[in-house]
Design a binder for these strands. Sequence first.
DNA 1: CCTCCACCGGAAAGCCGGGTCA
DNA 2: TGACCCGGCTTTCCGGTGGAGG
Length: 414
Amino acid sequence: MMDVTGFFEKMLASSRIFKNKEVLRHSYTPENLPHRNEQIESLASILVSALKGETPSNVMIYGKTGTGKTATVRFVGRELEKTGERLNIPCYVCYINCEIIDTQYRVLATLARMFDRNIPMTGWPTDQVYSEFRMAIDSKDQTLIIVLDEIDKLVRKGDEILYNLSRINSELDRARVSLIGISNDVRFTEYLDPRVRSSLGEEELVFPPYDANQLRDILAQRAEIAFYDGVLDDNVIPLCSALAAQEHGDARKALDLLRVSGEIAEKENSEIVEARHVRMAIEKIENDHVVEVIRTLPTQSKLVLFGMVLLSRRGSREFTTGEVYDVYRQLCRRVGMDILTQRRISDLISELDLLGIVNTVIVSKGRYGRTREITLNVQRNVVASVVLEDFRLRSLSKVDLQYQAKLDSITSQV
DNA sequence: CCTCCACCGGAAAGCCGGGTCA
DNA sequence: TGACCCGGCTTTCCGGTGGAGG
């Protein structure tokens, strides 16, 4: 039997990089938020009504991912609750992520459960859940701030819930409710009932992306807690910030980059994190992303992609829609899948282009027609190994080489 | 200058699984 | 429960096209 305790201790002791890695995760809400004072103050000035026993206006918050929307709301919400407690004025902030809780029923059930009501996962009429929730909160004089993060995800399934929540105050005697909606899509309100839209958008806050300098401050602040002193090379944080700033000023990406850089350094038992680790991290993140994208592709698209891998192993790097379609058809027969039309495959290829997995250019070869010229944009072996994970395509791995020979003989004849 | 290749890409309709409503 | 609807995927049909070769 292995000495497990010693094993873990050894691993822990060998980590000379991270002091507290949790700080670099998205879920962490820091003690203060650099470069968000303006937004914090605006939000606080709206929510302060709650401490005066009034109903705060509803707020819509817009901003791209990684601009600190959620962190700011969490932060201000926490301060509000703390202050309320101190002054003995009950204020509660209910945070709901609509990407996970994405139906009217589940939102109401989750809210009601926060007030200790027992609601079954499913089965009750929605009205009943609603009134259960209403009674739960109306039991005493209090202010409730309901935060609906990623609210656009909820709206796709109908705005009834928003309508109900936005007019709930008229059915309450003692409690007060106000809503905060968070969205990264500015246009989502277009699909709303005008009444809901105006009620929800009483106040609006916009979170601009961070620039490189701001990101640097954010990273520096977190790095201090996350890393041991002196393990970060001086140019690591500027590099991470600059790279993330190029890419839409997303603080989440910057933090990921920093964390992965540290993980890589740790794995290779390096004493310090250097610029080269950051560059490796970019590659790893990029690669993981590509793998994930390919993995979640429909099987048909994977087959098309696999055909492209085979084609690209041949002499020339680029190939046409027609060539891809021919190979694709043969692969379909091999694995016993339905053959889609060329029109459809053409669309699948466009999607792959959009995803950045391939590059396509429409070229005219005069007499020999007009077609897309396609090049693979990712490593062949990565594509092949991920595609072959698909259980319907397993049989291809054996076929691969013989097939390659056959393909070569066909193309050499032409 | 015209032809004609090999495909592009829009429009519309069919199919299918899932959800809704009376 | 069955009628109905919806959205995603796919097929069918078809007009459109840049440029090598005649």
